[in-house]
């Protein structure tokens, strides 16, 4: 018996590992929240990511200033130290000024949206690059729940996928599971924008005879029950009409540069139908 076990040891290990792998992947169908262990990992790594971002911003700023300082030194050696001091001071003000501009733009945008908006910072981008999502520093305690729309001053970013106590994972517009009901602004033709190939999107269910042109702006229709109406989603890049198919293929470039987002707004409806519905479902589940 033991000799047989020893002979098939390798096979058993491979079988065990494969079972473990399949089990892990099966968790994809169960996980809907950022659990406490993930919360701990995010809490531990967030200061690191924030510090690295700060350092990176400062280095970028200092490098650009250094080039300028060399020129000043050539012009006037005596004022070099003074200029360096002023430069450092200016750098701090410039950072504050840029941040102010960004926040101002966010606030202006916030005023145009009737929903209650929660500003959030992107803590970390998807490290692998293949799964289009980011983690933001807002969660349940800020009133965020699954499928809450996420936007920035340019347009639609995505929607909340998993929520934890103080973090949420946002599925970006370019993710294949993302679907946004849209209108073509020019002629109100309706379609659904989905993720295409990790970087861009596709507009689906647009009939072959529909008038779509490259450059058309797509805006949310508000009919998907997630996004409010009138937010910018993307621009038609190119479209193909296959006579053998009912629908044309439309390639869309997202309005928001999703690879570089730093700040977002999470739109929480003041009267949340999702939350009420979820509350009712929970009551049904708990009641005998």
């Amino acid at each position: 018996m033991w000799s047989l076990m020893r002979r098939i040891k390798g096979f058993l290990i491979v079988l065990l590992i494969l079972s473990l792998t399949f089990y892990i992947f099966s968790l994809n169908y169960k996980r809907h929240t950022i659990d406490s262990l993930q919360q701990v990992i995010l809490n531990l790594t967030m200061p690191l990511f924030s510090a690295w971002t700060e350092v990176f911003h400062s280095v970028q700023g200092l490098l650009s200033k250094y080039v300028w300082l060399v020129k000043v030194e050539e012009e006037n050696e005596a004022l070099r130290k003074e200029i360096a001091r002023l430069e450092n001071e200016l750098l701090v003000y410039k950072e504050a000024y840029i941040e102010n501009l960004r926040l101002r733009r966010l606030l202006e945008f916030r005023n145009t949206v009737e929903w209650k908006s929660v500003p959030a910072l992107v803590v970390v981008n998807d490290l692998s690059g293949f799964f289009q999502s980011v983690i933001i520093n807002r969660g349940n305690r800020d009133g965020i729940f699954e499928n809450t729309p996420v936007v920035n001053e340019e347009g639609v970013v995505g929607r909340v996928l998993n929520v934890g106590k103080s973090f949420a994972r946002v599925m970006l517009l370019t993710d294949p599971a993302s679907a946004v009901d849209v209108y073509v602004q020019r002629n109100r033709i309706r379609g659904i924008v989905v993720g295409k190939d990790f970087q861009s999107c596709a507009l689906k269910y647009v009939r072959n005879d529909a008038d779509i042109k490259p450059g058309d702006l797509l805006i949310t229709s508000g009919k998907d029950g997630i996004f409010p109406e009138g937010l910018k989603v993307g621009i038609v890049k190119v479209n193909y009409k296959d006579p053998l198919k009912i629908f044309q293929q439309v390639e869309v470039t997202p309005i928001v540069r999703l690879a570089y987002i730093e700040e977002v707004l999470v739109l929480v409806p003041s009267e949340s139908p999702h939350r009420e519905l979820r509350g009712q479902n929970d009551k049904k589940k708990t009641s005998p």
Binding site: T21, N28, R31, I41, L42, D126, F131
Partner: peptide
């Protein structure tokens, strides 16, 4: 697990690969 937490939607992508590597 840490990398899956910091990555995106496909849960288990890193755990599964690393487990296979160990095996």
């Amino acid at each position: 697990y840490i990398l899956d937490t910091l990555s995106g939607r496909l849960w288990g992508f890193h755990i599964a690969t690393y487990t296979c590597a160990v095996a």
